[in-house]
Design a binder for these strands. Structure first.
Lengths: 385, 385
DNA sequence: GTTAATTTGTTTACTGCTTGAATTATTTGC
DNA sequence: GCAAATAATTCAAGCAGTAAACAAATTAAC
């Protein structure tokens, strides 16, 4: 750790205090919150304002005597983040600003399995370019882009395997970064969707139901990726050791009970929308299928909570629209099977973002990178900003 | 973060490089490893040598020209840590030095359930005083003490509940800290035992088999305690949703297949030692019992690895002596059920420390505290050292 | 055997960051 | 209008790390 890291760390510290304060804090408030002196905070704040990361707002009316404080807020016209998503039947893009607000969104439907990876990425690049133009029109300078894919991704951004897209060893950053003129990160959609569901909780798990079932594990506010980056494979947690064989080679994986294919097959319907309509209309088969899936999901989730002691579970992907029927079954299993459930309540709820969670989370991960290391943003040449 | 934190951080950085180097590194080696300059490293090393945290060793013979380097090693006569353990049928104490070497160990048998908590702690205090005298005789100054207990502990060190000891709301630090003249920390035995099994791996899980089954989860070198401190309840992960009822109220928990009681009952023996002797002697019933337990343990551990992506599992407690028969069964399940097992190998092995893991881990947690923040040790008055 | 080369470790002048006190600015209350 | 109070800035000082020169101790070469 060197001296410049000290300053970088303190810039991030000030920014995080401003971001998490309920009301716009003054420089003096930030100083007491961080333990730094007012002189230091002033210097740091000047740097952050110079880089358009925070802004002063008019003095809030306050009781008592004294010079009024200038409130500080995260700037809504500083750097933004570009989120991208490739999924089986659509492409999506969105732009968020530093406050986390979504400023632009676009979705383009179409089956991507029929196309080779290079062609899909070309389509993605045009959608991204439109989003970049929209961001520019809003006065946002993009700090980078992140792509969500349903598959295993290496730390360098290569998609090692995305079975449902038919991708194998696709070097996404090489294909997109040059075309966009932005650094492009790539991550699993469950991981990125998890980051989009903060809800003010520090530790939670986002369960992503798609063809496969993934879990994005957030511990102490940080995504937990595991020793090698392959954590959260909830879909292959065992529900019944001698259950039906899974395409992974094992038997009785959760995916065989609560994966999209198993769910639709058991219910005898063709799509998730159809399933939701059927169960809402009182179809017995659909209700049974959802009860079975909810129970299996509950068993796997209860085991996860026993191990990780998280207090919140967010159901996303196809589970979000089906939540009214799934949540009670999951909660019932959790209540019985989690050892500490009696005195440490667990909340199970649906993702509020629905299918947009992954794109929004991807864009959010970019601005999160700026907020975690503002110094890197500040020291880039002004021409880029 | 202030300036003195910068120095404190760099002191810890230098100390950790010296600790983890395979051979005693020179100041120049430390400089290249840390990215600091040789001048800065020299100044930091002088501070650390002055505080007896590291020592110079004679120049190692080296090829090539140049002034010979003075090797640096963690000092074996600097601060030490006192580890204590209260368990159902014994009290234990041990002293480790800053290198992690055990310098003193004492165990006093005796059923602790018959005695009130205050009396047990008085016995613990005398054993601890003897250990402190032994540490003094070896030239070690104790930096603190840590007590391992089989129960739930609050962050402040109060034992909220230890069912097998019959303890409830026992304020251990208040009882021991004054008598010993040392700060006393308290933690669950599985957590502390987990810390005693480093093996040079950053992320691993220590599975503690006792009456219950616990797991100490170490991620990125740090113990993961969960949102509320109750992580690692592996014993109540579900193996078969409709299995035998468990005392926790659920069905088919791992404890019902691989807990000590289930294991001994299935094998038809009275103790773990007897079980090990039976299976070594070729008894079929014992072998079947161990195979069943190993399979169930494997299913639960595979699920855990799917979620956490750790690459090493350490079996401790009663599983350590039974490891030759359990490890193959666990490995077989892991191979089949962990999605990434094909390209990311998982190691399953027995704890080398056996029943001493918790005391040694407790003592280790104290010296770990010194190594993680050497500045605090350096700035305490010399009289205490 | 003397000298050059090489690597280690220390000294010295310097830059950058935070600090603390003094100063200025802007309001409320009397 | 004036004192009290609070916010923000300015400026000299101190401390940590840096870079480059220097001293020390050894090997290799002639």
């Amino acid at each position: 750790m060197r001296q410049e890291n000290l300053r970088a760390h303190n810039l991030a510290l000030v920014l995080s205090v401003v971001a998490s304060a309920p009301l716009p804090p003054s420089r003096a408030d930030v100083a007491t919150a961080t333990g730094l002196t007012r002189a230091t905070v002033s210097a740091l704040v000047d740097d952050l304002i110079g880089g358009r990361l925070i802004e002063e707002v008019g003095p809030a009316p306050r009781a008592g005597a004294g010079r009024p404080a200038a409130g500080l807020v995260i700037s809504a016209c500083g750097p933004g983040g570009l989120g991208l998503e490739v999924n089986v039947d659509y492409l999506a893009a969105c732009v968020v600003d530093l406050t986390g607000a979504v400023r632009h969104r676009a979705v383009r439907g179409g089956d991507q399995r029929a196309l080779p990876a290079a062609e899909v990425l070309t389509g993605m690049a045009t959608l991204a370019a439109e989003a970049r133009a929209a961001a520019h029109a809003e006065g946002l300078a993009l700090a980078g882009a992140a792509l969500a894919v349903p598959g295993l991704v290496t730390p360098s951004g290569v998609v090692r395997l995305a079975p449902n897209l038919g991708w194998r060893d696709v070097d996404v950053p090489a294909a997109l970064s040059g075309a966009l003129g932005l650094p492009v990160g790539v991550d699993n959609e469950a991981n990125l969707a998890a980051l989009a569901s903060p809800a003010g909780v520090a530790s939670y798990v986002y369960v992503s139901g798609e063809i496969g079932i993934g879990a994005g594990i957030v511990l102490h506010g940080e995504l937990f990726r595991g020793a090698r980056g392959w954590s959260g494979e909830l879909g292959h947690v065992c529900v019944r050791p001698d259950g039906p064989p899974c395409r992974c080679g094992a038997r009785g994986c959760l995916e065989q009970y609560a994966g999209q294919e198993a769910l639709l097959r058991t219910a005898g319907v063709a799509s998730v929308a159809e399933l939701a309509a059927a169960v809402a209309g009182g179809a017995a088969g659909a209700a049974v299928a959802l009860a079975t899936a909810g129970e299996a999901l509950g068993v796997a989730i209860a085991g996860m909570i026993n191990l990780l002691d998280v207090d919140t579970v967010v159901l996303g992907g196809i589970y979000a629209p089906l939540a009214p029927w799934l949540v009670p079954a999951v909660e019932a299993e959790v209540r019985v099977r989690v050892l500490t459930a009696g005195w440490a309540p667990v909340t199970v709820r649906a993702s509020a973002l629905g299918s947009a969670a992954a794109v929004v989370g991807a864009a959010g991960s970019v601005v999160r990178g700026v907020r975690d290391d503002p110094a890197r943003w500040l020291q880039r040449p002004a021409a880029v900003r």
